[in-house]
Lab assay of single mutants.
Amino acid sequence: MVIEDPKTNKLIEVEKLPDGTYKVTIYDKKTGEKKTITMSKKDLEKLLKAL
């Protein structure tokens, strides 16, 4: 799943891993910076609600 946040000009890509956690990659379209973090479903839901 890919989500675009027009306010921050970032793309957020979410991928479910076999162990039940989620790999979240955040791309900054302005700088080209890429950050990848792994989080639980509960933390991911908090992140998505904040957008």
Score class of each variant (00 low, 15 high):
M1Q: 13
M1H: 13
M1R: 03
M1A: 15
M1N: 13
M1G: 15
M1Y: 00
M1W: 02
M1P: 08
M1K: 04
V2N: 01
V2E: 15
V2T: 02
I3C: 12
I3V: 10
I3G: 06
I3P: 14
I3Q: 04
I3A: 01
E4I: 04
E4V: 03
E4A: 02
E4H: 03
E4Q: 02
E4D: 10
D5F: 10
D5E: 03
D5C: 11
D5Q: 01
D5W: 03
D5N: 00
D5I: 04
D5P: 01
P6Y: 03
P6V: 10
P6K: 06
P6Q: 06
P6L: 12
K7W: 08
K7H: 12
K7V: 15
K7A: 14
K7I: 14
K7Y: 11
K7L: 14
K7T: 14
T8C: 07
T8L: 04
T8I: 04
T8S: 11
T8R: 02
N9K: 02
N9A: 08
N9V: 04
N9D: 12
N9C: 13
K10E: 09
K10Y: 15
K10N: 13
K10V: 13
K10I: 14
K10A: 12
K10Q: 13
L11M: 12
L11C: 04
L11K: 05
L11G: 02
L11S: 05
L11V: 12
I12E: 02
I12S: 01
I12P: 01
I12K: 01
I12R: 01
I12F: 14
I12H: 03
E13A: 08
E13C: 11
E13D: 04
E13M: 13
E13W: 15
E13F: 14
E13S: 08
V14A: 10
V14I: 08
V14R: 01
V14K: 01
V14D: 00
E15C: 05
E15H: 09
E15D: 13
E15V: 08
E15S: 09
E15K: 08
K16R: 12
K16E: 12
K16T: 15
K16V: 13
K16M: 15
K16I: 13
K16G: 15
K16Q: 13
K16P: 15
L17E: 05
L17I: 11
L17Y: 10
L17R: 05
L17V: 07
L17P: 00
L17M: 13
L17D: 08
P18V: 11
P18C: 10
P18E: 11
P18M: 09
P18D: 12
P18I: 14
P18W: 08
P18R: 02
P18F: 09
P18H: 13
P18Y: 12
P18G: 12
D19P: 05
D19F: 08
D19W: 11
D19N: 10
D19K: 06
D19R: 03
D19M: 13
D19G: 06
G20P: 00
G20C: 13
G20R: 06
G20A: 09
T21I: 07
T21V: 07
T21L: 11
T21R: 07
T21N: 05
T21Y: 05
T21G: 04
T21D: 07
T21C: 12
Y22L: 02
Y22N: 03
Y22E: 00
Y22S: 03
Y22W: 10
Y22A: 03
K23W: 09
K23C: 05
K23I: 03
K23V: 08
K23Y: 05
K23A: 05
K23E: 03
V24W: 02
V24A: 08
T25Y: 12
T25H: 05
T25S: 07
I26P: 00
I26Q: 09
I26W: 04
I26K: 05
Y27C: 01
Y27A: 03
Y27V: 02
Y27K: 02
Y27Q: 02
Y27H: 04
Y27T: 07
Y27R: 01
D28N: 04
D28E: 04
D28L: 02
D28K: 02
D28R: 02
D28Y: 04
D28C: 06
D28S: 04
D28T: 05
D28F: 02
K29R: 04
K29T: 12
K29C: 09
K29I: 11
K29L: 15
K29G: 03
K29Q: 02
K30R: 11
K30V: 05
K30N: 09
K30A: 06
K30D: 06
T31R: 04
T31P: 09
T31C: 04
T31A: 05
T31N: 12
T31D: 07
T31I: 06
T31V: 05
T31S: 07
G32W: 15
G32A: 07
G32M: 05
G32V: 03
G32Y: 12
G32S: 13
G32Q: 08
E33N: 07
E33F: 12
E33S: 07
E33C: 07
E33L: 12
E33H: 10
K34F: 11
K34W: 14
K34G: 10
K35T: 12
K35R: 09
K35Q: 15
K35H: 10
K35N: 14
K35V: 14
K35G: 11
T36L: 09
T36V: 14
T36F: 14
T36E: 05
T36S: 13
T36Q: 10
I37V: 10
I37S: 11
I37Y: 15
I37G: 08
I37M: 15
I37P: 00
I37N: 10
I37C: 13
T38G: 07
T38L: 15
T38P: 09
T38R: 05
T38F: 15
T38W: 15
M39V: 03
M39I: 04
M39E: 00
M39A: 04
M39R: 00
M39K: 01
M39L: 12
M39G: 01
S40L: 09
S40F: 10
S40R: 14
S40Q: 06
S40C: 08
K42D: 11
K42L: 14
K42H: 11
K42C: 12
K42Q: 14
K42W: 15
D43L: 06
D43E: 10
D43C: 10
D43P: 01
D43M: 13
D43A: 07
D43S: 05
L44V: 13
L44N: 00
L44R: 00
L44W: 11
L44S: 01
L44F: 09
E45G: 05
E45H: 14
E45F: 14
E45L: 10
E45S: 10
E45V: 12
E45I: 10
K46H: 15
K46V: 14
K46E: 15
K46W: 14
K46T: 13
K46L: 15
K46D: 15
K46R: 10
K46I: 15
L47R: 00
L47W: 13
L47N: 00
L47Q: 01
L47M: 13
L47V: 07
L47K: 00
L48R: 01
L48F: 09
L48I: 07
L48P: 00
L48V: 03
L48D: 01
K49A: 11
K49L: 14
A50T: 11
A50G: 05
A50I: 08
A50V: 08
A50M: 11
A50E: 10
A50D: 12
L51A: 08
L51G: 04
L51I: 06
L51T: 07
L51K: 01
